[in-house]
Design a protein around this nucleic acid. Structure first.
Lengths: 366, 366
DNA sequence: TTGTAGGCGTTATCAA
DNA sequence: TTGATAACGCCTACAA
């Protein structure tokens, strides 16, 4: 009982459960039971405890609780870059879902750097996160790390990107399908030579978008011209460079595999005095609220970002709760939104029958 | 020494410092000294310990360390909404600065709801965050909470918004100045009737942008017409509604106090068949990489978001380190970026002399 | 129903 | 230089 003889409470550091117990003239057990609503505590003691808590302004130290209960009610989230406009909504979705379950989020940006990612993962393990949400950087998890993860049994949910050697629950958008629809749309309205600004081939969704492009070309009997294709890294600069090299080739249209690259691409077009959709058609990937307000209004494939976050968090929370079973994969449906950048208005002679595809004409919505 | 007799290591939960000590046939103190590079440990023991750590794949439990050292190396961040494109870069700045100092971030979105904010603040205190970065929701901190904060001595840095009753370090952008420059620019190029879509008056930067607007009108001897003014909440919908009500009044130009409201405003203009800058001039607030690539290219006031985040984190880290002194206020300079939405190209007859203002013609940069 | 005391995994004090 | 051992603040069998 050395503890009860501690400092005369106050002065930084806040009151502890012992202070409350002393104040209420009960044991720490009683206080604990009251706080956690566990076990039956008599009316009078209950009141005394609550009064003491209020009087001392007591807040339980969640650090100590986490240590004792072996759970932090915190989940670690690693995204490539929170400043990439794709991820904020994903994170917000995860945050909301987590919050609803009493969990909170620590956020890290890996910059797609496997080394950084590894550091953060180790951090999460050391901080005893209850679970991890991960948009994997290129490359596989180091065996060393995988061993720890498995040993510790910390659940991980992969977001947006699979990772070959990591068997874990995964939530994806169907980028293969999305890319296929994007390019199909271009083909359907009459474009013949369709270029690609693709994502990095060393991440799964980069490959998927690439494959969807090729599949669509095949489906419409269009040639694959390797010189009309460029690989980017999802950032503005790479889209810009791709624009500089691809635009002079004067193909009919382009599919650009994400928004940031589209921004760079458009900048290049602007500098070269090329206009969209008059000089080239364009379908982008990933929609934003402002795309409909500025010219050219981008035809794009909307990805359910918020839902991606919530779904991932839900899966993770299930695992944290102890659910067992083989890894689950959820694939969310993208949705083609047709505006003008594709050249649809210019070529509406080839009327598009909806064909049961996930097509949305923006003028129809809202 | 009961502890050493614990479970036969392994099977979830990972090894503890005791396991390492036993493995290396030393005391926990020795292990701890090696890990923290504190105190002198003999060569041979040092090696034995390192070997044991490697062999057992030992990672210190940061939770336990935090409890013992009374510091978590974690800072709590509350922003109104991480999905508002303004904040990701701020958070990224804070994250980078924190990371560099060995700190990490837990992120919460308050939705500008004081109640939610209070819950999160209490959470941060309970989780013993070393410091807090806060973009205050409207209203003042509850006295109850302020008492705790003060009592606990947890440093807080206010970002973007002041809070009357909370004396704390603060990092702002000079929104008064920014708004003044925005509106002055409109006036300078010949606009006479200038409307305002302002931010919420119950947050400090909303007021500042409002005041800058009025100051500029005065400076250019323009009338303040209250019917040309609308109060929004920084979200798209409010900008849209403002557009619907203000645009029919056919004033020359508008200053819209943030990007999201501009998006809504443009949507309204689009629906009404009004074009910018032909039918009305517009200056927005807050710049993004894609603003230069789409029409109308927005003239806007760039706010140093990333720097806002880093500066805030730096200030906070200083306080965490124990720096004392009166609350500091840092005000970051905004920068007017002139593109076409203001109508500058249309009216370039009134040539703009730079006048030493922070004006940037986009064609000059890059 | 309530209290006692040991455990969670570190750090830190104080002897040896 | 090392080693016991008491904090850190909470939870929770086990006792009473």
């Amino acid at each position: 009982m050395v503890r009860a003889v501690r400092r005369k409470q106050g002065s930084k550091k806040g009151p502890t459960i012992y202070d409350v117990a002393r104040e209420a003239r009960v044991s720490v057990f009683t206080v604990s039971s009251v706080i956690n609503k566990t076990g039956q505590v008599g009316r009078s003691l209950h009141c005394r405890v609550e009064a003491a808590i209020k009087k001392l302004n007591y807040r339980p130290n969640l650090l100590a609780r986490s240590l004792a209960k072996q759970q932090t009610h915190t989940i670690g989230v690693i995204v490539p870059d929170i400043a990439n406009p794709f991820f904020p909504l994903v994170v917000r979705g995860a945050e909301d879902a987590a919050e609803k379950a009493g969990y909170h989020i620590v956020l890290c940006s890996s910059d797609n750097d496997p080394a950084k990612e590894e550091v953060y993962l180790e951090l999460f393990l050391s901080k005893r996160m209850d679970g991890i949400l991960l948009t994997k950087a290129p490359g596989s998890l180091s065996p060393h790390l995988r061993q720890i993860v498995n040993g510790l049994g910390v659940p991980i949910v992969l977001m947006m990107r699979t990772c070959g050697d990591l068997k874990a629950d995964t939530v994806l958008t169907d980028d293969y399908q999305g890319a296929f629809e994007a390019v199909s749309h271009l083909a359907r309205i009459g474009h013949q030579r369709i270029g690609l600004v693709g994502g990095p081939k060393n991440v799964s969704n980069g490959r998927a978008r690439w494959l969807g492009y090729r599949k669509a070309l095949k489906a419409f009997n269009l040639d694959y011209e390797s010189n009309l294709v460029a690989e980017g890294d999802y950032r503005i600069e790479s889209g810009y460079r791709a624009g500089l090299s691809l635009l002079p080739l004067r193909s009919d249209a382009f599919y650009v595999a994400n928004y940031l690259m589209t921004v760079g691409f458009m900048k290049a077009a602007d500098e070269m005095g090329l206009r969209c959709p008059e000089d080239f058609g364009l379908v982008s990937f990933d929609d934003y609220p402002w795309l409909g307000c500025f010219q050219p209004r981008l035809t794009t494939v909307d990805l359910p970002k918020y839902e991606l976050g919530t779904a991932s968090a839900h899966l993770l929370l299930e695992r944290i709760k102890g659910k067992v079973g083989p890894p689950l994969v959820r694939k969310l449906k993208p949705r083609l939104i047709v505006r003008e950048s594709c050249g649809f208005r210019l070529r509406k002679r080839d009327a598009v029958s909806a064909e049961g595809s996930q097509l949305t004409l923006e003028s129809e919505q809202s």
